[in-house]
């Protein structure tokens, strides 16, 4: 499944995987900001960003083709809008829109491809994101695929009982009924989780098995990325 690939990628042990989540998150933000502020005709800049991303993927030893393919998930939406712009005669702007969107998606994918989500969220918490949001997101990610699987099981069960085609009014009520049952089960599950957490000594926050420290290599990564982005941005042709 989708998320299993991402989990496998993020559990690697390359130099990039071992860096502190804060350095990777802030570095990605710098890269994204550079991409988003690039003017329409700035081929060297887009090539530069592509080179940085490709280097990142290679250093992280991620499968290049798979990453590039997965980032293409944003292409349909950006192509739709690009077609809209192109019809109005501005083909260069349309092309820049697609390139920008694609490069941004690849940058985001590289970030989560080299940082397990619990580590990334812990890094964001240390950067000042409210604890409530972080905890909620951690629980969400933990139970996301459990509940999605449950909903798929319910769908299979319903069709096994002869769900096929029914009148529209009945179909709507039946779908609403399954969501309600899913809700009831989720609610029960949440209560069970809380009791289990208390039994295991939960004290209000998740702890990482291997806490990371912001070392000199992390400063090097972040500093290098920000410097490269600044230089690329500085040498931009005027918009």
């Amino acid at each position: 499944m989708h998320q299993r690939t991402l989990d496998q990628w993020s559990r690697g042990a390359s130099w990039l995987h071992r860096r502190d989540a804060r350095a990777k998150a802030l570095g990605t933000l710098a890269l994204l900001a550079l991409i988003s502020s690039a003017p329409v005709r700035a081929a060297p800049l887009y090539l530069g960003v592509t080179a940085i991303l490709a280097a990142g993927i290679l250093v992280a030893r991620l499968p290049l083709a798979a990453v590039l393919l997965r980032a293409a998930i944003v292409i349909p939406l950006s192509l739709t809008f690009a077609a809209l712009v192109a019809i109005q005669g501005d083909v260069a702007k349309a092309a820049a829109l697609v390139v920008r969107t694609y490069l941004s998606a690849a940058a985001a994918l590289l970030l989560v491809g080299v940082t397990p989500l619990p580590k990334l969220l812990d890094g964001l918490r240390r950067l000042g994101v409210p604890k409530m949001i972080i905890l909620t997101t951690q629980f969400l990610y933990r139970y996301l695929f459990v509940l999605v699987e449950q909903s798929q099981h319910m769908r299979i069960a319903a069709s096994a009982r002869g769900g096929g085609r029914v009148l529209r009014a009945i179909g709507l009520r039946r779908a609403a009924g399954s969501v309600a049952v899913l809700f009831a089960r989720s609610y029960d599950r949440a209560e069970g989780i809380y009791r289990a957490m208390l039994a295991r000594g939960f004290q209000g926050e998740f702890r990482l098995l291997e806490p990371t420290r912001f070392g000199w290599a992390d400063s090097l990564l972040l500093g290098g990325l920000v410097l490269v982005c600044a230089v690329l941005g500085w040498s931009l042709p005027a918009a």
């Binding site: 969400l140 509940l147 969501v179 209000g204």
Partner: peptide, 26 residues
């Protein structure tokens, strides 16, 4: 405090509920 897991599970519930199709028209 007991609601903290509930919020996360509710987020996951919305994801799962989005997978259920509702017949709305022909």
């Amino acid at each position: 405090e007991s609601s903290i897991p509930l919020l996360g599970v509710m987020g996951a519930f919305v994801f799962a509920a989005q997978m259920i199709n509702f017949p709305v028209g022909p």
